[in-house]
Amino acid sequence: MTDRGGVLEIWGYRELIGRLVQRELGSRYKRSVLGWLWSMLNPAATLAIYALVFGVLLKFDPPRAGNGRFDNFALYLFCALVMWNAFYGVITGAMSALLDLGSLLGKVYFPPEAPAVAALLTVLFQAAIEASILMLILICLVNVSWTFLLWPVLLLFLAIFALGIGLVLSVWNVRYRDVGYLSTIVLQFLFYVTPIVYPLSLIPERAMGLPVRDIIRLNPLSQFTEASRELLYGLDWPGVLRLGLMALISLAVGAGGWLMFKVRTRDIAEEL
């Protein structure tokens, strides 16, 4: 066997990964009348609900858009929500993919990260659809700049970051199913301590004697959602320092998670 366990090996199994992605996408909206429309209706509905609750009822105020001609809470929200959806999708996808395909690992050999990589690609596909719609709307509103081109890079960083976490959680979840339940709760909490449905400026500097705004700002996920808003809505760029920092964090988390996964999955065929 050539290079068992290396990155090259995953490339060698691209056929399998491609098939898994195809299967996931193909089976997703089977037996539904609207079919593929759901992949747009779903995020649209979520967006509408949040926009209604937080923008209309609670009257959260979005900043002005980059072209200075309008402000729109739904679009401001959407920029961050795309990032969150990708993050959430990769983590939950990696966990369920390993459980789902794990039984095969006891019968044939393939790299155990293949299901997670397939889940990642599926999520990126979905994110690309969502982002395209968002960008299209923004272009129609003449809110467009070269910063759009940086956005895919940001998504890539986020994907690596999420994959690192997803890999670790997925392998723990095989052993302790509690991880799956627990992570749902943690993710829910994370959703609200990340500036997605609200602008960061809405958070008080200090609460309960803690510098809450800084704490939320330091949450790596906040960096991604804020940067996404800056790039698409604010037409501003986060600067080399912040982008570099995000790259560093995502690579560290991605590599760390992958290494931990490697060690943990050496005997995974026996556990599934």
Binding site: G12, G18, R19, R23, L104, K107, V108, Y109
Partner: peptide, 29 residues
């Protein structure tokens, strides 16, 4: 390797899809 009933079949997929899945697991284009 043919180790168990249905080497590495995924129950929800059709026989044809499983042929492709299995082949790709074995690295066959």
């Amino acid at each position: 390797a043919l180790l168990e009933l249905g080497a590495g079949f995924h129950p929800a997929l059709s026989g044809r899809e499983n042929i492709y899945l299995n082949a790709s697991v074995l690295g066959v284009p």
